[in-house]
């Protein structure tokens, strides 16, 4: 293996954050290896190394691994949350962080397809954060926007805004990117200018 390939492999393995624990045609849920190790809302992630599927992080949760054991307050008296975890290290073993990603595309024959994948990711597939080049490539076409706008997720507009904000930052002219995306959103939401404006306002850097 040449060193360039080796470096890329090492970089990708650093971005692996968890494994899929629930998957359907429209979304997949990842359990993080590290407590609070989920990516920010709107991040682009990939799952399944055999059949890579793109997802946009739409919902994150941290809770007890055992539903019958709920966390209890440790205070008053402790200075900050860091000292609570320092004093009760077992919390890291008893809590878990998970996030759900809306499926927005997949890779077929090294080409990005911005449609639902024919099959969902396999359970226990690894999930990793996309690289910058993958994110730029994926967000260069707006076919995915309709998937997010029509998602059954309650806050899908906010998820879209977060994604656009992340994607815009990677471009030399972020405002132009948001204007172009705004045109696509407006065409998909005729007569809903207030909603379009709200999405763009939340996406603006």
């Amino acid at each position: 293996m040449n060193s360039k390939k080796q470096n890329r492999k090492e970089k990708l393995s650093k971005e692996i954050i968890g494994e899929v624990i629930r998957a359907s045609s429209t979304e997949f849920e990842t359990q993080c290896y590290d407590l609070y190790g989920f990516p920010p809302l709107g991040s682009l992630v990939l799952s399944d190394d055999e059949n890579p599927i793109f997802g946009i992080v739409s919902h994150s949760v941290t809770e007890s691994l055992d539903p019958s054991r709920t966390p209890r307050p440790r205070g008053p008296g402790l200075a900050d949350v860091k000292s609570i975890y320092q004093e009760s290290p077992q919390l890291k073993n008893l809590l878990n962080s998970r996030f759900t990603s809306i499926t927005v595309g997949y890779i077929q024959s090294q080409t990005v397809v911005r449609k639902l994948s024919p099959v969902p990711p396999k359970i226990l597939s690894i999930t990793r954060i996309s690289t910058e080049s993958e994110l730029i490539e994926f967000s260069s076409n707006f076919d995915f926007v309709a998937r997010l706008l029509n998602s059954s997720f309650a806050s899908s507009d906010d998820v879209l805004a977060s994604f656009l904000s992340i994607a815009a930052r990677l471009r030399p002219e972020p405002d132009q990117y948001l204007i172009d995306t705004g045109k696509e959103i407006a065409s998909l939401l005729p007569g809903q200018m207030r909603r379009v404006n709200l999405i763009l306002r939340n996406a603006s850097i």
């Binding site: 004093e87 290290p89 077992q90 890291k92 008893l94």
Partner: peptide, 14 residues
């Protein structure tokens, strides 16, 4: 089994 290290670099193993 449960093992908890308190102090520097605290951790737990269950």
């Amino acid at each position: 089994t449960c093992l908890i290290k308190y102090g520097d670099d605290s951790y737990a193993e269950l």
